[in-house]
């Protein structure tokens, strides 16, 4: 099962590579040492938060504000962890506490779209390869810089999005509900981000909750009216 997790995580590992290489390069130009850069990837393991922290560090922002911003941005993982909890097998608590560390947008999406239940060893495999790619490539980025040709770098930036689409489409083919959930959540997210200028972490949380509740409510209502007839 560990092996299955590793295999499922290869797409994440590839998608993380350019993001982590760029993080390493930016961290260097922000003035972080290679130890600080690598340590941040080892301890935090959250792409968007790490990028923003570099920006804030370079602006001379205080520690509390940086940590608070990180918290706001990553609170969405609470929702993902709660959802994943409905799908995971009953493993020892320490194992669940351990793999909980590796829940990111990407590892969550892959685990949640897997057929059947999810075991701790699957999660360890999935996270092992994703986390390794993240940490190692952050360090490499600091040493050699992201000197990939610019057009390759640019097209690689689509990799994680392509993975999300690749996870979603098979679900839509088998269950129409998935389509309504994705579209409604995406539209709410557009309104929140582009119009109301809600911070990204919160926008994902709010659009996910609203769309998940609304679609559930609409479905149960439809079921009731069908039964009533």
């Amino acid at each position: 099962m560990f092996r299955h997790g590793v295999k499922a995580g290869i797409a994440i590992a590839i998608g993380y590579a350019p993001v982590a290489l760029t993080f390493g390069l930016l961290a260097k130009s922000t003035g972080l040492s290679i130890i600080e850069t690598t340590l941040m990837s080892i301890i935090v393991f959250a792409g968007a938060a790490q990028y923003i922290s570099l920006n804030l560090i370079s602006l001379g922002t205080g520690a509390f504000e940086i940590i608070f911003t990180t918290f706001i941005l990553n609170i969405r993982h609470f929702l993902m962890s709660a959802s994943l909890n409905e799908k995971v097998e009953h493993d020892a608590l320490w194992k669940k506490a351990l793999y909980a560390f590796g829940i990111t947008d990407e590892t969550f999406s892959v685990a949640a779209m897997k057929e059947g239940t999810v075991s701790a060893s699957y999660m360890f495999g999935l996270i092992f390869i994703s986390y390794s790619s993240w940490v190692v490539n952050s360090a490499i980025g600091h040493v050699v810089g992201a000197y990939l040709p610019e057009n390759v770098q640019l097209s690689l930036s689509v990799a994680l999005y392509a993975m999300f689409v690749g996870l979603l489409v098979p679900a839509i083919k088998t269950e129409q509900k998935a389509l309504w959930l994705a579209i409604s959540s995406g539209l709410i997210n557009c309104i929140l981000l582009l119009w109301l200028h809600v911070p990204k972490g919160w926008a994902i949380v709010i659009s996910t909750i609203l769309s998940a509740i609304f679609v559930q409510w609409a479905m149960e209502r439809r079921k009731e009216t069908t039964y009533a007839q």
Partner: peptide, 15 residues
């Protein structure tokens, strides 16, 4: 909670 993964993917992709 079972709906969350699909909704999350929607919000991660769009926009």
């Amino acid at each position: 909670l079972r709906n969350v993964p699909y909704a999350t993917l929607g919000a991660l992709i769009i926009p």
